[in-house]
Every structure is written in C-alpha cells, then in structure tokens.
Design a protein around this nucleic acid. Sequence first.
DNA 1: TTGGATTATTGAACACTGTTCAATTAAATT
DNA 2: AATTTAATTGAACAGTGTTCAATAATCCAA
Lengths: 203, 203
Amino acid sequence: MGISERKDRGKLELKTQILNAARKLFLEQGFDKTSMRNIADLIEYSPGTIYHHFADKNAIFYALHSEGFRELGRRMIVLSAVGDPLERLKAMGKIYIHYALENSDMYDLMFIKEEPVDSVDDDKPWEEGNDVFGGLRMTVQECIDKGYFEGHQVEPLSYMVWSAVHGMVSLHIRKRCDVIDHAACTDIVGESYESFIKLLDKS
Amino acid sequence: MGISERKDRGKLELKTQILNAARKLFLEQGFDKTSMRNIADLIEYSPGTIYHHFADKNAIFYALHSEGFRELGRRMIVLSAVGDPLERLKAMGKIYIHYALENSDMYDLMFIKEEPVDSVDDDKPWEEGNDVFGGLRMTVQECIDKGYFEGHQVEPLSYMVWSAVHGMVSLHIRKRCDVIDHAACTDIVGESYESFIKLLDKS
DNA sequence: TTGGATTATTGAACACTGTTCAATTAAATT
DNA sequence: AATTTAATTGAACAGTGTTCAATAATCCAA
C-alpha cells in the first residue's frame, strides 16, 4: 500500500497548503474578507479543489480554530509548576489574557465569532473548549478544597472567572472600551485584571 | 414651508419603514442573512431607494443599535430608587443581564459584533456606550466614596464589573458555555452572577 | 507498454451579496 | 402648462460561497 500512502501524503500536503494560505490571509485581513477564491489563488489551485478537502469555508476556519486551542493549551502547561491553586488560577488568567491580546484574530475565531452550527455535533459539543474549561474547573475546585471561596460552587464560580477575563479581552478586541478614560488608565485590561485579582484575594 | 414639512414627514416615514422592516428581518434571521434586497422587498421599494435614506447596510443597523441603547438606558432608570450604591451596582448588573438575554440579537449588535469603522468618529467615539458606562462609573465611584472596594481604582474596577457581566452573557449568547455541567447548574448566567455578587460583598 | 478504472482538478455556472447610477417617474414651483 | 426639483427605479458591477459536468492526471492489472 505504498502508493496509497503517497496519495494520502499528497492529499495531506494540499490540505495543509490550504490551511496555511487560509491562515495567512485570515491573519492579514480577517475572516470575512478572506474568500475561497483568495485562498485558491494563493495556492494556485482552482476554487473547486478546496471543496475536496474541506466541506465549506467554515470547515477551514474551524480547523484553524482548533490550532488556536492547541496553542493556548500549550501555554497553560507551565501552570503545573505553580503549587498553590489560587496562584495558579491567577496565573491562568494572565496567560489567557496574554494569548487573547497577542492573537486577537485567533481569539475572535475561538471565542467571539458565531460558531458554524454544522461543525458542532450535539453529542460532542465543543471539545476544545471543554479541555480549557476543564483545566479552569479543576483549579477552582482545588481552591475550594483548600478553603478559598467559601460559599461558592465550583461550576458557577469557574464560569464567572472565565467570563471576567473573556469580557475584558473581548470588549477590548471589539473596541468597546473606548469609553475608558485613557488619562486615568493606560492599560485597561491589565489594570482591570489586577482589580479582579484583588477581589479573588479577599475571598 | 408647509410643503417641505410634508416632504420631511414622508421621508421620515419611509426611513422608519426601512428601519421597521430591517428590525423585523434582523430579529428573525440575524444581521448577515438580512440583505438589502430583503428589506427592499418587504417595504415594496427598489433596493436603490434605501440608499437615499441610509448610507449603507451598516448605517441601518447602527440606527437599530442606537435604539437598543435607548431601551437599555430606559431600563436603568428604576435604579435611581436604590439608595445604597453597592445595592444599585448589583441591581444594575441584573438589569443588564436580563436585557442581554431577552434581546440577545440586539445585544449582539450593541456589544459583540464588529463595529462598522466608518460609523464611528475618532473624536466622538461611541456615544451610546459612553452613556451606559458613565452610569456604571458613577455608581462605582459612589461605592468607593462610601468605603467599599478599598484599594481599587474607579476606572479599572468599573471596566472589570462590566467585563464580568458582558463575559457571562456573551459566552452564553455565542453558545460557548456548553462546557458547563448542566446537571450541576441549570441557570449558569444567573448563578454565575450570584457568585460575582458574593465577591463584591466581601470587598 | 497499453488500456481501463480511479482520482484530482478545473472553470464555468448558479444564485446570491452590497452598492452605484443613468434613466425614468412623480411632485412642487413658477 | 411648462419647468424645475426630488424620488424612485432597475439594470449593471464586482464580488461572494458553492456545485458539478468535463477534463487531466494518476494508478494498476493484463
């Protein structure tokens, strides 16, 4: 079956070619302004060819979106070095925020954009998100076990922490934070997260 | 000038006709799936006519988005009855969340969707948002004045509070909260907000 | 090596999109 | 009634995602 191996390799190469072109164009000009023809032009194939490797435009960007989660997960690995769960939780938020602000287009795809309905099964909903949130939930649970956050439940508390950091970065990415007084506050996301940490420390 | 009055009235009527049709279609099928021709068909005018009342598609939905802010502001009026600023702050969040979940498409337009770059002047950035955030900032300032939130600054703290509620509702609207264990938590946004309030109360 | 079956690739075509603009119709003014 | 002004049209433009019959390239057995 040496032949079909080469076949698979060739196919995979084109698939990654498409993905590379899509990523390049997407990071340069955003999702909406990246057309299938743009991608096809860049890899010098006809538009129709792409559809033999991806069901539709969403499928391409769903693949990229998965890449983003792998990278985010990779950045979270260093957290295993942090013993105290509350400190780990705080560091987690910092990593999350850094990733989001450094890769805002990717973050957009991962957490802000409308999910393509077709690409998500009802049975296995959003596996990538589950991995990230699972890590958060575990850390929050450890905090509770150690006596932090008295009177809180793990599920709502985890969601709240996630919401706080997601809110900060997504309002920033979507430029809704122009309402902030820049004289009084240069790095609104950073300082806002410090404010949040102060709340956590008092609990 | 009785004639030009009638003229203005007629023009305004068509303008609101367009707005009504746009709102109806938008709430039924969303922004992207609502086309200019759809709107034109509904009011039985040609597509070109719309462009004599609105610069482009964004202008129409920017007008709707302004409506949304007026409604949200209207709902905030009852807060003047709440004397204690911390209680007022908490009630503010509740109203915000309720509005967002009841009018999720509108909220999408107001806080999640990419702002059309052209519709925002650099000098007067996002007036509507300023009004809402101004109310939040004032209440937070009052809290600080009364001795709550020791060691916090008004600007980052306000942004943090806003981020928390925005995060909760926007993750919910964009269906990113499927990662939550529904057995342990039926109303994730509500319970998560309760968790947040507990943090505020301890500060 | 040749012929037949597979597979990959093409590019035209379809039904849409937002937007523009010369031509037409309607209304108001002189 | 004639003329000016404003409102309205619908075809046209350049683009979109997607499909599909036709073509080109490849592989495998005889």
